[in-house]
Computed example of a mutant assay.
Amino acid sequence: MSDTVAALDQIRPVLDHVVINVMGELDAAAAQYTRLGFQLTERGHHTLGSSNNLAIFGHDYLELLGYLPGRETQRADLWAHPAGLTGLVFKSVDADLVYSTLKARDVPVQPPMSFARPVALPDGTHDARFKVIRVSGEQVENGRTFFCHHDTPELVWRPEWQRHRNGVTGIAEFVIAAQNPARTAALYEQMFGPGLLAQITGGVSFRAGAATVLVLQPDAVAARYAGAALQSGDGSDRMVALVFKVASLDAPRAVFDAASIAYQSYAGGIIVSHQDAANVALGFTV
Rank of each mutant, 00 (worst) to 15 (best):
G283F: 03
P111Y: 09
E42K: 12
L85Y: 15
H81V: 01
N166I: 10
S2T: 06
A258G: 09
L197Y: 05
V132N: 07
N53M: 11
V240S: 12
P13V: 06
D3V: 13
V280H: 06
A116P: 00
V119C: 11
N142S: 14
V168D: 13
P194D: 02
S114F: 07
I11F: 10
V156H: 02
W157L: 03
E63W: 15
K131A: 04
S100T: 12
I176F: 04
A7W: 12
P118S: 01
Q275K: 14
Y225F: 13
A172R: 15
Y263N: 06
Y33D: 07
A120V: 11
D9C: 15
R105W: 02
E42N: 15
T47F: 04
H150E: 13
A226H: 02
D219K: 03
P181W: 00
D237L: 10
A185P: 00
R183D: 06
A198H: 10
F174H: 01
A7S: 01
S236T: 15
I176N: 03
S114P: 05
A281F: 11
L97T: 09
L102V: 09
H46Q: 02
S50H: 10
Y61D: 09
A178F: 07
R253T: 00
G195R: 04
V156S: 03
V140W: 01
A223D: 02
V246D: 10
D60S: 15
L121Y: 04
A258T: 09
I20R: 05
H81L: 03
N21M: 08
D127K: 01
R165C: 08
L187E: 03
E173P: 08
I176H: 12
A7L: 08
K91I: 05
M239Y: 12
F174G: 00
M23S: 12
L214R: 09
G143K: 03
V156N: 03
A31Q: 14
A229V: 04
D151M: 08
P153L: 11
A80W: 00
M23W: 14
R165Q: 15
R134E: 05
L65P: 07
V255Q: 09
Y61V: 10
P252D: 09
L65M: 15
V140I: 12
N52Y: 08
V221Y: 05
D16C: 10
S92L: 11
W157C: 05
V19Y: 04
L230T: 12
R144M: 05
Q74R: 13
P194T: 05
V19Q: 01
Q74L: 11
Y99E: 01
A178R: 11
A226I: 03
L216I: 08
L196Y: 14
I176M: 14
R158D: 07
A76F: 04
I270P: 00
R163E: 07
A226T: 10
W157H: 11
R238D: 05
V243E: 14
T152N: 13
E189M: 11
I261R: 10
R129D: 00
W79Y: 15
A172E: 15
C148D: 01
L242E: 03
K245W: 07
S205K: 07
